[in-house]
Nucleic acid binder design. Structure first.
Lengths: 163, 163
DNA sequence: ATGAGTGCAAAGTGTTTGCAACTAT
DNA sequence: ATAGTTGCAAACACTTTGCACTCAT
């Protein structure tokens, strides 16, 4: 919305690249492509989806490299992943790279993943910090439960095996 | 701690079996064994760990059957699972079957999974219910972040690749 | 120049599926 | 009796690994 001239880091990719160098690791086409894809998506993406997107932007990058890049970026705390269901993991930029964080909420009934305000867990985060010195990472969190629709179904019917 | 004479369901397995019948599904050795193992463990267990434990109690149950039992129990909302890392899923009894629920908290640094009080997310649960009619399932939740020790390491050192 | 990062193929792991036999209802 | 469950083997999806080569530093 604004030019971001005064902001610490207008582009999360730039900052991430900086940190890769700072950690003595190498900046490659594959890694920057992965970061770019995740930054543009600003959504959880599977390794396969990332591979597809990267292939579009930088053809020739092997699927294996995507996994290795994600692994490296995860170790550097630039990327985090979540396993919501029994299928593939979904990756996203680390919370500190993106400004406004949001929490992911998944319905056990229909599988829909919706968003909740980033400050939803502030209370819990405060208690965790105070009680056991634990620093909660909101973007890495996936809450599970039942959405209004599915809850209505579950509590009444015989559960005609959704999903 | 007490005898539980006045409690609605002393044994979660008994209640679970009741609900299986109520849903018109069949009560089998494999399913009750899985429930028993989960109830005794009162901890998150991988399918493989469940298979091992069930094999001890009721030899002859095939590994595949464990998966199918878990799948059935999950559909009946008697069992829930979590994917904390890149390895196998971990299963546990649904929150409504066990009395005191607790929230699982995983450190991204050392991978340790610790517990937090069950009411930790009460605030968030209330907001979710009020704002979007979402019913949070506390036992299905896995919070991610950094424990005190690993946080100290991360914020200062060059991350000598833990895990 | 030199070793971290990559491509390729091949092997892993955890989980699911098809079908005949079994068993809880 | 009979449909839901199971055992077995085989396939499955997702991810990791070994090795030679390449490119970022």
């Amino acid at each position: 919305m604004d030019d971001g001239a005064q902001h610490p880091t207008p582009d999360p990719v730039v900052e991430a690249v900086r940190q890769i160098r700072a950690h003595g690791e190498r900046v490659t086409v594959a890694r920057t492509a992965v970061l770019r894809v995740l930054a543009d998506a600003e959504e959880h993406l599977s390794a396969d989806a990332i591979f597809a997107a990267v292939s579009r932007a930088a053809p020739g990058v092997h699927r294996t490299t995507i996994y290795r890049a994600l692994d490296a970026l995860e170790r550097l705390d630039l990327v985090a992943f979540t396993r919501l269901r029994h299928d593939a993991a979904t990756y996203h930029l680390a919370g500190h790279l993106v400004g406004g964080t949001h929490v992911h909420v998944r319905c056990r009934g229909c599988g829909t993943v919706s968003h909740a305000p980033g400050d939803l867990l502030d209370g819990a985060a405060g208690r965790l910090a105070a009680e056991q010195g634990f620093t909660l990472e909101p973007t890495g969190v996936a809450l599970t439960g039942w959405c209004a629709d599915c809850r209505a179904l579950t509590s009444r019917t015989t559960r005609t095996t959704r999903v």
